[in-house]
Nucleic acid binder design. Structure first.
Length: 263
DNA sequence: CGGTCCTCCTGATGGC
DNA sequence: TGCCATCAGGAGGACC
């Protein structure tokens, strides 16, 4: 799944579900293995994991010995636990005890990589800090003259923010979505960063359950738990939500409640 | 540098 | 019912 909160939930799920070496392994769609050989993947997945780690939307698993396994979910990837080796859109399946774990990804934008230590370090070097570790002064510099949306979705500036988090947080702070980073003071940058920390904490608090086998949002027939994203009416003023497109991505916002920084 | 468009892929949804 | 357009949580690259 997509943003920091859902990836953190996937990390916690793997941690509670993948407690032993896999006994059976199926690489159902070899295309999802972006780097490394199928044999490398099978060898690692058949070991007992030592640590489950995450930065932003990047998840990886470390083992006592050998390379690491990295997961990136992009738009529609997620980790699912079932009792069957058959699962719709499963690209990789492995059996742990009585459970089957699946890397499920209908659109196949997501991928898995086998990482050496130096490959891991190189991948992480391209990512900015998680929101809780972000420095407002540095953030403001790295945002440059761009619109906030472009800067915040740039994973090298801050890691983990996606389209939904951007939309929800801008509404919470009353900021117009077309505002530029340079229009915000350092104090306002601090509030912005804290709002992302709060938003992602709430997602994990609301949606993580060790027993729950999957998460379904908006586009998969599930519910929409968000206040502005793909909504019609503003919860604050009851006015209509509007939609605009920035960099090819939809932005939903309330033109009455989000006037701050309006151009 | 910044903005826009396209691409990867497969589905759900709504209009006609 | 069928057909077509549009949109979808991400991100990299081409191009102006």
């Amino acid at each position: 799944m997509p943003e920091l909160g859902e990836v953190e939930i996937a990390r916690k799920h793997l941690q509670s579900w993948w407690t032993d070496a896999a006994s059976t392994f199926h690489l159902i769609d070899a295309k999802v293995l972006k780097s490394g050989e199928p044999a490398d993947l099978e060898r690692q997945i058949s070991q007992t994991p030592r640590a489950f780690k995450r930065r932003g939307k990047q998840l990886w698993v470390e083992f006592a010995d050998g390379p690491h396994l990295a997961f990136h979910f992009r738009m529609t990837g997620q980790i699912v636990r079932t009792t069957s080796p058959e699962e719709r859109f499963s690209r990789i399946a492995w059996q742990v005890g009585d459970s089957w774990l699946h890397f499920v990804d209908p659109r196949r934008f997501g991928y898995v990589e086998v990482w050496t230590d130096s490959e891991r370090d190189a991948a992480l070097a391209k990512l900015g800090p998680d929101p809780h570790a972000a420095d407002p002064k540095l953030m403001r510099e790295k945002a440059g003259a761009r619109q906030l949306k472009a800067a915040l979705l740039d994973q090298s500036v801050i890691a983990g923010v996606g389209n939904i988090a951007f939309i929800e947080v801008m509404w919470r702070l009353g900021l117009h979505p077309e505002i530029k980073g340079s229009q915000l003071s350092k104090a306002e940058w601090s509030r912005l960063i804290q709002a992302f920390v709060d938003f992602f904490d709430e997602v994990v608090e609301r949606d993580f359950s060790p027993e729950q086998g999957r998460i379904d949002y908006v586009n998969t027939g599930g519910t929409n738990p968000f206040e502005i994203y793909q909504q019609d009416q503003c919860p604050k003023c009851s006015g209509g939500i509007e939609r605009l497109v920035q960099g090819g991505r939809s932005t939903y916002f309330c033109p009455r409640c989000q006037r701050s920084g309006r151009r």
